[in-house]
Design a binder for these strands. Structure first.
Lengths: 142, 142
DNA sequence: TGCAATTCAATTGAACTCAATTAAATTATA
DNA sequence: TATAATTTAATTGAGTTCAATTGAATTGCA
C-alpha cells in the first residue's frame, strides 16, 4: 500500500523519456554528421543559416532555444571552418550578424542526405511523427 | 521551385523540437530541484535508488541511458552529499554497487512535491501526455 | 542634452554528455 | 592451467548547456 511514492517512479515520468529520446536521437545523427564534420549543435545552426543567409546571433539563438553562452563558441567554430562570417552590425554595434559563406552554402548539398537517413532509423509511422511533432511544439509553447 | 532543400528546414525536423523540448522541460525542473540541492541528472539517479535501494552502476546506467563517463561524477557527488554509498561488490570486484543511505531515503519525502508541480507547468492534456509518453518510448525502442 | 535603463554578445564557472581509452577483474577457451 | 576475450568502472578530451556576470552600445526619459 506504498502508493505515496508512485509519482517518483522513473516509469511514471514524462520528462525522462523526453530527455532520453532526445539524447538517443542526437546520437543517431552522429555517424551522418561526422561525414560533414559537424556536431548536432553546429548542424542546427547551419540549418538556420541555410534558411536565413544573414541573421543576428540573437535571432538565431531564439530560433534554436540557445543562449549566447552556447552559441558564441558554436559560431566561432563554424567561422573557423569557413562556413560563417561574424561581423558587428553597422547600425547597432551590439548586434552580431552571422552570414553564410559560399563554402557554407555548398555544404547544404552534402547535408541533404542526412534527413532521409535519420528518418529511416527513427521507427515511427508518418502519422506518429506528425502527432509527436505537434505535442512537442505544444510543450514549447509554439 | 526550390523544393530540394525543404527537408533541411528547421520547421521540417522532428529531432529539433525533441531536443528543444527536452532542454526546456529540464529547465523547468530547476527551481524545484534547487530546493533539494539536486541537478536533474542527480534527481533521476536518486529516482532509480528510491526504487532500487541497492543497484550496480551498470544497471543504473542502463536504466538512465547514461554511460560511466556521466554517471561516475554524478554518483560521486551524490556520495559527497551523503545520499549514496559506493562500494565494490564482494562477488565481482569490477562491479560498483550503489546503495541509498537513510539521508537519501529521507530526501524522497521532499521530492514528492516535484512531480505535481512539474505537471502543472507542462500544459498537456492527460491523454496528450499518454500519447507523448508512448511515442517517446517507441523511439527508445522500449 | 545627460543620465538611467535596456539590450546584446562575450565570458566564466559548474555540470553534463559522449567517444575513446585504460586498467582491473572475471570468464572462456585452447 | 595459461592465455585470450570479455566485462566493468574510471579517466580524458572535446563540446554543449545554462546561470550569472561583465562591458559596450543604444534607447528612453526627465
Amino acid at each position: 500500500m506504498d502508493k505515496q511514492y508512485d509519482t517518483l517512479k522513473l516509469s511514471h515520468q514524462l520528462c525522462f523519456p523526453l530527455y532520453a529520446a532526445s539524447k538517443e536521437v542526437v546520437k543517431r545523427y552522429k555517424p551522418f554528421l561526422d561525414e560533414l564534420d559537424l556536431t548536432y549543435t553546429q548542424y542546427i545552426a547551419m540549418m538556420v543559416l541555410w534558411e536565413h543567409p544573414t541573421i543576428s546571433a540573437k535571432d538565431m539563438g531564439e530560433q534554436l532555444f540557445l543562449d549566447s553562452g552556447t552559441l558564441t563558441p558554436v559560431l566561432k567554430s563554424l567561422e573557423a571552418k569557413g562556413y560563417v562570417v561574424r561581423r558587428r552590425s553597422d547600425e547597432d554595434e551590439r548586434v552580431l550578424m552571422c552570414s553564410l559563406t559560399p563554402t557554407g552554402l555548398a555544404l547544404r548539398d552534402k547535408a541533404t542526405s542526412v534527413p532521409p537517413r535519420i528518418a529511416a532509423c527513427i521507427h515511427l509511422l508518418p502519422e506518429e511523427g506528425i502527432a509527436l511533432y505537434s505535442l512537442l511544439y505544444k510543450i514549447l509553447g509554439k
